[in-house]
Write a protein that binds this DNA or RNA. Structure first.
Lengths: 157, 157
DNA sequence: TATTGTTATACTCTATAACTATA
DNA sequence: TATAGTTATAGAGTATAACAATA
């Protein structure tokens, strides 16, 4: 019987299934955030600043694995929307301390709730156990990737 | 105790964990494919053509969810590497039939094996059941995303 | 008319080098 | 000298409109 789908070989690879699922989630999340004037990336930045007031750009870039130059434009955007403030650090006048404004906090809360709702929609058909297992698997994979950065199983000096 | 990581709120969202895991896999796969002169995208295209000789560009674009214009450049690249041929279809002289060359088949096989090995490395720490559950969850999510494209729960005409 | 492949174009995300001002 | 933030730039990947050849 069969008539296997045209991409059946690729389905054996984690990367392919992951890309398809991630693309689906990303479009969904971006569509969800659009009414708030946010995207997945700006929402992530806004959320981390809200949770870590006084955070500096270098540290924020590390946390989200964004290059410092790329973060600058994102913060310009969020600052321009009056969601985030940059204030010179007293102890180190090279650095900025990042904080969300009241408007930023409110938007972040509403947007976060919307994303959570759409997360639930994207996860329907999966039990609570299956969703928990998914999160565990994703973090395990991420950590496996991180450990091979330096362990140098491929690259040689 | 506690001292929760700076991105702990984001970790509750599927999209964030998925992005982190996908980014890790993608860099790994791209690094793995680099010695073959391929990337995740070109490898996917090559594999689908190998599995579906005579496939046309429109159909290939559908299968991989790539826009037709973007596929053109990828095929130019693969054709330039002598991995793929475009031949005019006899029954419809607008269309091309895509096939892999012998060189393309060999490269695809070797590259596929390398990707499978690195897939296994990225999945270490996960049991066979957990890996199977991950694939099922990813496909469920992808399918949930697809069904909301038209169902229009958000957008209104 | 509609479709296949194509060109041109633009936007997002990402990556690197080099600059400035502080330290 | 080193670091924080910035500027400029380039590369992927993705998305849309419009065109030529063919149906």
């Amino acid at each position: 019987m069969g008539d296997s789908p045209a991409d059946s070989s690729l389905r054996a690879f984690m990367g392919y299934d992951m890309k398809r699922a991630f693309t689906a989630i990303q479009s969904d999340v971006n569509a969800t955030l659009q009414p708030f004037g946010l995207r997945m990336l700006t929402f992530s930045v806004l959320t981390v600043i809200r949770d870590n007031p006084g955070l500096r750009q270098s540290r924020l870039a590390e946390v989200l694995m964004i290059e410092r130059p790329n973060l600058v434009l994102i913060l310009d955007e969020l600052e321009g929307m009056d969601l985030v403030t940059r204030t010179r650090a007293r102890d180190d006048r090279r650095a900025y301390e990042l904080k969300v404004t009241l408007k930023g906090r409110r938007l972040c809360d509403r947007a976060g709730q919307a994303v959570a709702e759409h997360d639930a929609r994207m996860a329907r058909g999966l039990s609570a156990e299956e969703r928990a297992a998914l999160h565990r698997a994703l973090r395990q994979i991420e950590s496996n990737g991180r450990s091979s950065d330096d362990a140098g199983e491929i690259s040689r000096p």
